[in-house]
Design a protein around this nucleic acid. Structure first.
Length: 735
DNA sequence: CGGCCTCAGATTTTT
DNA sequence: TCTGAGGCCG
């Protein structure tokens, strides 16, 4: 039996299949192995795979679990291993008529939500300084996560000016989504709960189907997810939740740590198994992390242990400035790299994305390759959102939101006034904007400049829709990109920024190709759905040998031989807001714990005594977490004792800063170089070109290279004229 | 309609 | 200090 790869506790967890089970899995305790082996064990015991449901938070986690399960037991397509949202979407697609939605409902993402709330604010004449759209949305989302509707909100809260405003926006927001046959991410969960409440037969059907349920990262579930799982598990009580209360770092967006703390109250017959043996980190790192986390109250109280050696002590460096800090980190990487390390063995984990900049500069100076996992989500990029809007219109001609987004993108001379005019016609005719614009009569009312551009666009979208069964998704994409004039506008702009956008659009196309390859029956509807539920496209190939920079939040679930935690200063980490409440402070402390436990062999902490934040330069105090850390585990000088720096770093702040200023490249450039390097490694098509080479472009045909610089080639095409293209991205072949 | 300028605001982020 | 959003003018 495969279970022999597990330790005794893990095996007990894997074999405890019946009844409620809480697995408290500490950092690095082999959680994923345990879960996958558990599923494999169930299959071996003869439980049909369609009776099993495994829920995760991210697509990545779901994908990983599925592939590891399939390694053990072979393909099992009828097993539901997916995210909460994907699970709800799937159930709602079949049943949403029950709660008054059309089968073809669409999903609105965060940007769509913001647009809608902004429109509501404008309509209702609400001062958006007093009530900003993001603020209102966060409140609305908070309530939706607690399964509270707008009307229930009104009945529950005190009646005053503020709650009146929130109610009216909340209500209008609900109505607007319903009108557009759209759901936001919260609705996917909320409406599934409503569906179950409204139609018991459907709930019973799913209870009968999902006889064995597992939930990953249970400490991060919010109320509605909890409710959903509870409803599903009610029938049979075979519910296994896996999590670590010490790693709950998402309370600020609704995760309710009580879900995991109170599991035994919810299911009194629950068994609890703690996985405390850590296979990841050396002893000193675990001890250090423990000395910090034990300052939290209300824990389930686990203590990780390892049979590995103690390892090096924790290093700590108190830098002068953030630049000094970054230089120290870069230097240390060079030093350690000299021994037995690869660049990809290093991670720099910071509290805020803004901190990445100095590290990028310092790494560039030392020619250390790196990649930044930025907070900007893939679908948040403007050009991707624009193309998505075009594609949505192909699927759903009623989507006024998307049409408004792209009607003047690229510029077609359609300002607000013209759009409102068309909206007027559409309202009278009871049609959507796109439908109205499909009529020559309406189109004719537009000024000459707008007329031809809009007509072109509308024809292109409608054509793609009519032909969508005959066209590949990538064909539709190409068509939209070119015929709407979007690509041309970017090419004409001829700026670095536009080039980057073209790059992203090409990347998006490779996402489409991937989808077409992997899907059974590729179609644009399914593709759009997949993309909407996908956060960051996993385009960062882990094979690339580069130092990784990211926030501690994004590092959850990952591990690295060497981890740097910079910026350990009160006000930055823990962030200044943490000093208002002990709840916030405890969450920051858990984040610190997550950060520290990412390290396998070496953990290096630093802080800067002077930091410039938001243009304000201030002296800092060393982080409370440093003060909590067991000093005996610190290498060399304890906290509060200045270390003298190597001569290589310069002696005084002045000379060092001067040096840094002279040498540092523009941060934007360094980012681009890093990206370009990633690309070059990833794509096979990075041929070397020289001026005078004849080339063939996939779209523009044959041409001649007349100029090149760091990242672009200038090509004259026989048919299409002169173009600038991005090296390694543009589909060019040497002839 | 579009470009430029001024002003506020500024953790963490999956789906 | 930097970025994004909104207002104003050409």
């Amino acid at each position: 039996m495969s279970l022999e790869r597990l330790n005794e506790k893990q095996r007990r967890a894997a074999m405890q299949v019946e009844g409620p089970l809480l697995i408290l899995a500490g950092a690095g305790s082999g959680k994923t192995s345990t879960m996958t082996e558990r599923i494999a064990y169930m299959i071996e015991q003869g439980i049909p795979s369609y009776h099993i449901l495994a829920v995760t938070f991210t697509n990545k986690a779901a994908g990983e679990m599925r592939s590891r399960v399939e390694e053990l037991v072979g393909r099992c397509d009828d097993m539901w291993i997916m995210t909460f949202h994907a699970m709800c979407l799937r159930m709602l697609r079949y049943n949403c008529e029950v709660i008054g939605y059309d089968h073809n409902f669409v999903i609105y993402d965060g940007t769509d939500q913001k647009t809608i709330v902004k429109n509501i604010l404008k309509e209702q004449g609400i001062n958006d300084k007093e009530f900003s759209a993001p603020y209102l949305l966060s409140i609305i989302s908070d309530y939706k996560e607690k399964a509270v509707s707008a009307d229930e909100y009104r009945d529950a809260v005190e009646d005053n000016y503020k709650t009146k405003v929130i109610y009216s926006v909340f209500k209008a927001y609900e109505d607007e989504l319903k009108k557009n046959n759209a759901m936001d991410f919260d609705d996917l969960l909320l409406n599934t709960v409503r569906l179950f409440e409204q139609d018991e037969a459907i709930l019973l059907r799913y209870q009968r189907k999902f006889q064995y349920i597992m939930v990953d990262e249970y400490q991060d579930t919010n109320h509605i997810q909890y409710k959903l799982i509870k409803m599903l598990a009610e029938g049979h009580h075979n519910l296994c939740v896996v999590g670590d209360d010490d790693q709950c770092i998402y309370q600020w967006r609704g995760a309710d740590i009580r879900n995991i703390l109170d599991f035994e109250k919810d299911f009194p017959e629950a068994k609890v198994i703690k996985l405390e043996q850590n296979y990841r980190s050396v002893g000193n790192i675990l001890a250090a992390a423990h000395s910090v986390i034990e300052n939290n109250r209300g824990r389930k109280g686990k203590k990780l242990w390892t049979d590995r050696e103690d390892g090096d002590k924790i290093k700590y460096y108190r830098a002068d400035t953030e630049k000094d800090e970054a230089r120290y980190v870069a230097q240390e990487i060079d030093l350690l790299k000299g021994r037995d390390k690869k660049y990809s063995d290093f991670a720099i984990l910071y509290r805020t994305n803004a901190q990445s900049r100095h590290f990028e500069e310092a790494l560039t100076q030392r020619d250390i390759p790196y990649r930044v996992l930025s907070g900007l989500r893939y679908y948040d990029r403007k050009e991707i959102k624009d193309m998505m809007a075009y594609m949505r219109l192909v699927v759903n001609p009623y989507d006024d939101l998307s049409l408004r987004r792209v009607i003047n993108e690229p510029k077609r001379g359609m300002g607000d006034k013209s759009v409102e005019k068309i909206q007027g016609f559409a309202n009278v005719r009871g049609e959507s904007l796109l439908q109205a614009l499909s009529d020559e009569e309406v189109l004719d009312t537009l000024p000459g400049k707008a007329y031809s551009g809009v007509k072109n666009m509308v024809e292109c979208i409608n054509l793609c829709r009519d032909e969508r069964d005959n066209l590949r998704v990538s064909d539709i994409y190409d068509n939209l990109l070119v015929k709407t004039g979007y690509m041309k506008a970017l090419e004409d702009a001829n700026t670095v920024e536009a080039e980057g956008r073209i790059e992203n659009l090409m990347e998006f196309k490779s996402v489409i190709y991937d989808y077409e390859e992997q899907a059974d029956k590729p179609n644009i509807e399914e593709f759009m759905e997949k993309i909407t539920l996908m956060a960051e496209v996993d385009n960062h190939d882990a094979n690339q040998d580069a130092v990784v920079l990211m926030t501690m939040h994004s590092a959850k679930g990952l591990e690295f031989p060497v981890v740097f935690l910079p910026g350990l200063e009160d006000g930055l980490f823990p962030g200044h807001k943490a000093f208002d409440s002990s709840d916030k402070m405890e969450e920051e402390r858990r984040l610190c714990y997550v950060g520290m436990t990412r390290a396998k062999e070496t953990l290096i902490l630093c802080s800067a005594s002077v930091r410039t934040l938001y243009g304000r330069t201030e002296y800092t105090r060393e982080s409370q977490f440093l003060r909590e850390l067991d000093k005996r585990l610190l290498d060399g000088d304890a906290v509060y004792v200045r270390k003298t720096r190597d001569s290589g770093l310069g002696v005084s702040t002045g000379s060092f800063d001067g040096f840094a200023a002279k040498e540092s490249p523009k941060p934007y450039d360094s980012l681009r170089y890093a990206k370009a390097a990633t690309k070059a490694n990833a794509s096979a098509g990075d041929e070397e070109f020289a001026v005078g080479d004849k080339v063939r472009h996939a779209k523009f045909g044959e041409g001649l290279i007349i100029d090149q610089d760091g990242k672009t080639l200038t090509v004259i095409f026989d048919a299409a004229g002169q173009k600038k293209m991005a090296k390694g991205i543009a589909p060019l072949k040497k002839l």
